[in-house]
Design a protein around this nucleic acid. Structure first.
Lengths: 201, 201
DNA sequence: ATTTTGTTTAACAATTTTGTCAAACACAGA
DNA sequence: TCTGTGTTTGACAAAATTGTTAAACAAAAT
């Protein structure tokens, strides 16, 4: 992150994020992005040299922002249920901001080999926090407040129930015959529904 | 579905499905598909006229196959839990065959306006079955065997927990530092983990 | 006022991807 | 064998997308 980030450079970058992660248009061209940003397409090359470099930067930053969000997640002296609740809040807020981020990651992982560039700087700390969280889940299972299973599975259940309804929104809307308003109502109720499924009571 | 489906025509179509739905390469070119199928690219145009028409056909058929799978789902005199278990089996089997189908649907829904072509022939029957299933969920909640919530939310929880780990596989593998073998083990345990989260006991 | 620096633009070139067409091919039926 | 039909191929054209360059521009520094 250089201090001198040109306004235009940032505009292009943010617009690209919007197109990919908010609108979910995974194969947008540089022209489309430039149009969306209201700038000349050549500026994409001027600031990012190539289309791929822009995409890569956007992808990396998207992940960083995501992890930054999650930083504030596993912190304080909350009860376990409160922690999970907070986790849902934070993750949902971010998934609401960038509904298609993980789908984009998956698609890029498959198409190019962006997998290398993904998750470069996975710090030791993060690993420890994750392990600690899994251990906490296990503990809670022994206490009997949540159903017994591999803590990893529990984690995956949690993440799935948060993310899927957001990244598959248009599909689910069609499948269930819901309009925007209906679906918004559904999303409002997600947190409770998830908690109900994760806790015995 | 015409009776005379040329071998080559089918080969191209199935290969395209594989590239999109199995390998998750959403922006594959006609050349790449032709190569994967081992045929001359021109044949794509010969049989499907244009790239878009191929994509559309593949997309529609993908949905049809999916729904055909689900047909056998909501049938017999099973207990509710057995029904859900069976539902998981069927849906997982299909999601295992086409892990990226719904992600592809979502991405297409966003990029083009394929949404129109999606879900054309949603029969009355299907609607009724779906409604009946939701009612059955509600009934079960009143019996107290599953947590109380909007039945639609319950349904979404179910689908999310099935599909997400499959369509986001590469992302989750990275995020959790799992190799193919580890992840396969996780997938093996999914059904139980999902059932544990869906049923009070 | 004039250089300098960084930014923006338009015109152009290169590349990639798609679509068309005529010729070659295979093979069944007359 | 010859003809007809459908299939396959390669060469080419067209379109779309990306990348480059030189010139125009703006605003600050000298």
């Amino acid at each position: 992150m250089s201090i001198k980030d040109s306004v235009t450079e940032n505009l292009i970058k943010e617009t690209a994020k919007k197109v990919f992660f908010v609108e979910g248009r995974f194969n947008a061209t540089t022209q489309e992005i430039a149009d969306a940003a209201g700038v000349n397409r050549t500026l994409v090359n001027y600031y990012f040299r190539s289309r791929d470099l822009l995409f890569e930067k956007v992808l990396v930053e998207g992940q960083q922002e995501f992890r930054a969000s999650l930083e504030e997640t596993i912190n304080p002296a909350f009860t376990f249920k409160e922690k999970i609740g907070h986790f849902i809040d934070v993750w949902m807020a971010h998934s609401l901001k960038y509904p298609y981020l993980d789908a984009y990651l998956a698609s890029q992982a498959n198409s190019g080999n962006y997998l290398d560039k993904m998750h470069k700087s996975k710090s030791q700390e993060e690993e420890k926090k994750k392990a600690a969280f899994l251990k906490e889940i296990k503990l809670e299972m022994e206490k009997g407040t949540i159903p017994e299973m591999d803590p990893m599975q529990y984690m995956i259940n949690l993440i799935s129930m948060i993310s899927y309804p957001l990244s598959m929104r248009p599909v689910l809307e069609k499948a269930f015959n819901l309009n925007k308003k209906n679906y918004a109502a559904i999303l409002d109720g997600r947190k409770n529904a998830i908690l109900k499924s994760l806790f015995k009571d």
